[in-house]
């Protein structure tokens, strides 16, 4: 167990600032998710922490020790790669024991540790197989077992679920969270999937263009986005943004409802012309335009199926949003300007 800290860390590849002066602290035993679009620098930041990249400037501190100049093997971190990076010529047992052999552990102790890790992920049956004889989910478990086996101070997970099919991904997410809780090892997890980030993270750091835009609990990130990037990156469909003078105002699609179901004392009404209705099983997505505005304001409403109100494309309806669900952002900087969002 340890804290992991990035101190004003930068990594430039020629002209590209992949990581641009990031300060970040993962607390002891915390599950910290780095979330951002592709190319935002999240994987580079993780590789800097692992020691696979040398920073252009700044320091990495693990457990109170500056490790910037240490090679990866001296940092006692374990990493699970998106491709799993299993050693294809070694059996599962040899794969798992590789980190232990690297530190010169006794053979008996190695055997016990491998059995312990294999049992933890239910892969005892596969110990004599080669990685190519395993399914995607089994490979992912082997990669996790290999990371866990030498009990590192930090886990670094780089999109470990992205190669699994949707069904398996859900159960794997569940198991991942469970084992991280049991081991209570500080974990940094890179993903571009917001559902994964929301479901797994104790805290989420949202990255864009090499910078941390906002860091907070999933509730804070969703409920109080710091700027328009976070507001539109998180949430599916994203937050509706409408131009109004020198600012934008924004509201979540699920907060935008017909007056007969959403009305309350602090509701603000909007005339809403519906252009299209999408039926998604559990929800309906209603696409349309806010009327009576200078600029065309396209917005989306997300209505759970227990709202029976009939909505037809081409008709006008009276929709409402509660005042406290409305966010305001500066039009130039994109920053949140209401008191509610910090």
């Amino acid at each position: 167990m340890a804290t992991v800290e990035a101190r004003h860390i930068s990594k430039h590849f020629d002209e590209v600032r992949a990581v641009d002066g990031i300060d970040l602290l993962a607390r002891e035993g915390e599950f910290l998710v780095l979330l951002g679009p592709s190319g935002c620098g999240k994987t580079t930041l993780m590789r800097l922490i692992a020691g696979l990249e040398q920073p252009t400037a700044g320091d990495i501190v693990i457990d109170g020790r500056v490790v910037t100049d240490l090679p990866p093997r001296a940092r006692n971190v374990a990493m699970v790669f998106q491709s799993y990076a299993l050693y294809p010529h070694l059996t599962v047992a040899k794969n798992i024991s590789f980190p232990l052999r690297a530190v010169g552990m006794q053979r008996d102790a190695i055997r016990k540790k491998v059995e312990w890790a294999a049992r933890m992920f239910g892969i005892e049956r596969f110990l004599d197989r080669k990685p190519r004889q395993l399914s995607g989910g089994e490979r992912q478990r082997v990669a996790l077992a290999r990371a866990v086996v030498r009990e590192p101070v930090v886990f670094l997970l780089d999109e470990p679920l992205s190669n699994l099919d949707a069904k398996l991904r859900n159960s794997a997410r569940d198991e991942l969270k469970q084992f991280q809780r049991d081991l209570a090892t500080t974990t940094i997890y890179v993903t571009h999937d917001q559902a994964e980030a929301m479901g797994l993270g104790d805290r989420i750091a949202v990255l864009n263009q090499g910078k941390v835009i906002q860091i907070g609990t999933p509730q804070e990130i969703y409920g109080k986005p710091m700027d328009t990037f976070v507001a539109t990156f998180i949430g599916s469909p994203p937050m509706n943004l409408v131009e109004e003078g020198a600012s934008y105002f924004g509201f979540r699609p699920e907060a935008f409802l017909p007056r007969e179901v959403g009305n309350s004392d602090d509701s603000v009404g909007f005339p809403f012309r519906v252009t299209r209705v999408e039926y998604l099983g559990a929800d309906r997505l209603v696409y349309g335009v806010l009327e009576g505005r200078t600029a065309e304001a396209h917005v989306i409403s997300k209505m759970p199926n227990n709202i029976r109100a009939e909505i037809v494309a081409g008709e006008r309806y009276d929709f409402v949003v509660r005042r406290r669900e409305i966010h305001r952002f500066d039009r130039n900087s994109g920053r949140h300007i209401d008191g509610s969002g910090r």
């Binding site: 090679p71 374990a78 299993l86 690297a102």
Partner: peptide, 27 residues
């Protein structure tokens, strides 16, 4: 040989010789 495999070996605690003899050469 995918770079990930070299990276994994480096993080797994293998130095140059172990990486070369146990990962690179066999592959």
């Amino acid at each position: 040989i995918p770079q990930d495999i070299h990276d994994a070996a480096a993080v797994d605690g293998a130095g140059f010789w172990r990486r070369t003899l146990q990962i690179t050469f066999p592959l």
